[in-house]
Simulated assay, not measured.
Amino acid sequence: MGLFQEFRQFAIKGSAVDIGVGMVLGAAFSGFIDSLVKDILLPPIGLLYSKMNFQDLYISLSGNAYPSLEKAKEAGAVTINYGLFITAFVRFMIILFAVFLVVRQINHWKKPHQHPIDSMTKKECPYCCTPIPSQAIICPNCSSTLEKQEHIRKKTPRWRINS
Rank of each mutant, 00 (worst) to 15 (best):
S35R: 11
A75L: 04
M23L: 14
E70K: 13
D34H: 14
V24W: 08
A16K: 14
E70D: 12
A28K: 08
N64G: 06
L47W: 11
N81P: 00
K51Q: 14
D34S: 14
I45D: 04
F54T: 03
D39I: 00
V78M: 14
S68H: 02
F92G: 14
L41M: 10
Y49H: 08
S35F: 09
L25F: 14
S68V: 00
A27H: 10
F89T: 15
L42C: 05
F32T: 05
K71W: 00
G14E: 12
S62L: 00
L41I: 15
L69D: 00
G76F: 00
G76A: 06
Q55W: 10
A16F: 13
I86H: 06
T87N: 09
M23H: 06
M93N: 15
S15E: 08
K38H: 09
Q55M: 09
F32G: 02
G83I: 04
V24A: 13
F92M: 15
K73D: 07
F85D: 11
L47G: 11
L25Q: 04
R8H: 12
V78Y: 08
D56I: 02
A65H: 11
S50L: 11
G63S: 04
Q9E: 06
L47D: 14
G20Y: 01
A16G: 15
K71P: 01
F32R: 02
I45V: 14
I40A: 14
F32I: 11
A88S: 15
Q55V: 13
N64Y: 05
Y66S: 05
D34P: 03
F85L: 14
F7H: 07
T87C: 06
L48D: 06
G20K: 02
L36S: 04
A72H: 01
D18A: 11
E70C: 07
E6M: 10
V17G: 10
M23W: 06
P44W: 04
V21G: 07
I45W: 08
A27C: 14
